[in-house]
Design a binder for these strands. Structure first.
Lengths: 358, 358
DNA sequence: TTGCGCATCCAAAGCGGTTTGAATTGATTC
DNA sequence: GAATCAATTCAAACCGCTTTGGATGCGCAA
């Protein structure tokens, strides 16, 4: 009994083999072993193979902490998530973005570190992340108008990529965004082409940059066809089922109700649908609905919910691409800021149809 | 122009002040400065204050990478998220758990590192996390029956805490779980007390441990009152809106339909509600519904959705507590495995009422 | 034969902290 | 007045890797 236990303890306590030990075992210097493993040219191919084999055999893994200190790089990327507001991790869209970004980091041997901090501590977090050297760069989530994080990050010299854009920021910076304006413009045009003229917008909160752009696209499309946007047909609220339900219910109760509704997300779209059906109307006949579909992996349009006509853009893919961009920025800090605009595609589903005859 | 640019570059390139520099500036040895900052007793209080002040003034932050190498601790905790399946990050519940855990880590100056890896790579990930020394411990998510990760982690000696339990694992291990069996037992009893006898269960996938326990609780409660569980009233599927809708619709179409339905989550509960209303029935009168409510921050029962009667247990709080447990295990690796069972509370909402008179 | 270049390999100096083992000093004890 | 002790402080080793600046040996042109 005691004996067995002692052995276990020894086994679990024995530290992992390190470079020096491996080198000794091979009768080589740590320098050569390190170079052999890292693919440097100044080492004999036969030697390299011997080293690689030995490393595998003794399953040697270089200690990440030592590498990080020696190279001066963190090999890690940060995502700072403020709590208290209901718009971040809280938001189911966020999880998919993180999943996408995480795939990229895994492939490149980077760690993804999430910092969950109180709202007011976000700036301090960036500062300390930088000066303590925990990460090589960060992704900025959910930009707002004149977002203070952008000048801050530039000032402290921490590489970053913004997911979305911050209206009002003058200096160029790295970002990756979906063309929200164009997406909602196209969706609106699609409805106009179907003969709709009373088209409503159930938007997200309009201090978020993407919501502003969506409204612009919607308004532009209407205006271009000579239709004056009706404030009664524009709502702005959280993107929840109940908010969608309420906004749509109110609009449908108007003397001159909409025949088509644009919803900001799948969830609010479900609320809109409930409102329409609750009025005894049929979606796609009396009332058309178009949603924006982030292509969430746990809630596929047409799989988990009936097929909505939608402007679709995978937020997970956006996560992958934003992460790639960030790694690139980290590798080439002096390069000009990259910017990338993804286009959403218009998916025709069963929730839209010709405008009902007056 | 050039001048300004040059200054910027110098500013952004100048490395952060380090211990040695600070020590020199103070006319002290690095040893003393380090000790002063870390609260060791063998340093004069006057000196300590001088050091603290200087550190703040020059805003010195110790380099995390160096600390990690020197102390041999990663000061980081891992969460491994397999992709490909639809049950992890993918799952909106997961985000809230992570947020809760993240709060704990922030408070304790630990980093939270998320590894998003392909399903089949999960075991290798744990191995490499351990041998490369990236983390001091991990949280195991979504345990299944006879989960292979538990023996693996024990074997490689990486501290861990399981969120949930793994039926079939013999050796004791650390876990934190909600008493799912009791929660569903109580919910079922509550319905029985209201006079219901045809009670249905719309469960999650039953290879997940929590789903098994919930069914047990449900079956036990029925059996204890002399009611034989009816297989036609038990469904098991993804916890999506559409799955809830389909399962409930099928049950309500039976010759002898249920008068009450237990749903595994808020989302599937919404599907159940849609099915009930779609049949022209009223929730809380003809059909009672009880859901399990994870108290998700982006979807509050009674705020974003009408109030359901529910068994409630905050998954975010679970994240906080599990993280605390893990930090404790890391600090005292030799201690006996901790285990903690959280009780869900029964929230009485508007979705339940007395059984309709036959 | 000498010298140069190339291919290999290695000793040692970092990276920026923590921690061990002593040294220094002034006060206390006998 | 010598020895002892507690309070402070420091020099140096160490954590495990990378990287600089040589060595070493050998083939080959001069």
């Amino acid at each position: 009994m005691f004996k067995v236990r002692a052995i276990e303890i020894v086994l679990s306590i024995r530290p992992a083999m390190n470079l020096k030990e491996l080198a000794t075992k091979l009768g080589l210097s740590p320098t050569t072993v390190s170079r052999a493993l890292n693919g440097y040219p100044e080492v004999n191919e036969a030697t390299r193979e011997r080293v690689m084999a030995a490393a595998k055999r003794h399953n040697y893994y270089p200690n990440t902490r030592a590498i990080r200190l020696a190279t001066g790089r963190a090999m890690a990327v940060g995502h700072v998530i403020p709590i208290a507001t209901r718009h971040e991790i809280v938001n189911p869209v966020f999880a998919d973005f993180i999943a996408g970004a995480g795939e990229t980091y895994s492939r490149n041997d980077y760690d993804m570190v999430l910092s969950v901090v109180p709202d007011e501590g976000e700036e301090d977090t960036y500062r300390s992340l930088k000066s303590k050297g925990n990460v090589d760069g960060v992704i900025v989530h959910a930009p707002r108008m004149n977002d203070p994080r952008i000048p801050l990050l530039r000032e402290i010299g921490l590489p970053f990529v913004v997911h979305g854009r911050a209206t009002g920021t003058a200096e160029p910076y790295c970002w990756l965004d979906v063309n929200n304006r164009r997406a909602f413009q196209r969706a609106t045009e699609f409805l106009l082409d179907l003969g709709h003229t009373r088209i409503a917008l159930v938007n997200g909160l309009e201090f978020m940059d993407f919501a502003i752009r969506r409204r612009t696209g919607y308004v532009d499309a209407l205006t271009a066809r000579g239709i004056t946007p009706d404030p009664a047909l524009m709502a702005s609220d959280e993107m929840t089922e109940i908010a969608g339900f309420r906004a749509a219910s109110a609009m449908l109760a108007l003397p001159n109700p909409p025949t088509a509704i644009l919803a900001a997300s799948m969830i609010s779209g479900m609320g809109v649908r409930r409102a329409v059906e609750g009025k005894g109307l049929t979606v796609g006949r009396e009332v058309s609905i178009i949603i924006h579909d982030d292509d969430l992996s746990y809630m596929k349009n047409g799989e988990d919910v009936p097929i909505f006509t939608a402007t679709r853009s995978s937020v997970r893919e956006a996560g992958r691409l934003a992460a790639e961009m960030l790694l690139d920025v980290i590798a080439h800090p002096e390069a000009a800021p990259q910017q990338r605009l993804l286009e959403a595609e218009l998916i025709i589903g069963q929730s839209t149809g010709p405008a009902p005859k007056g």
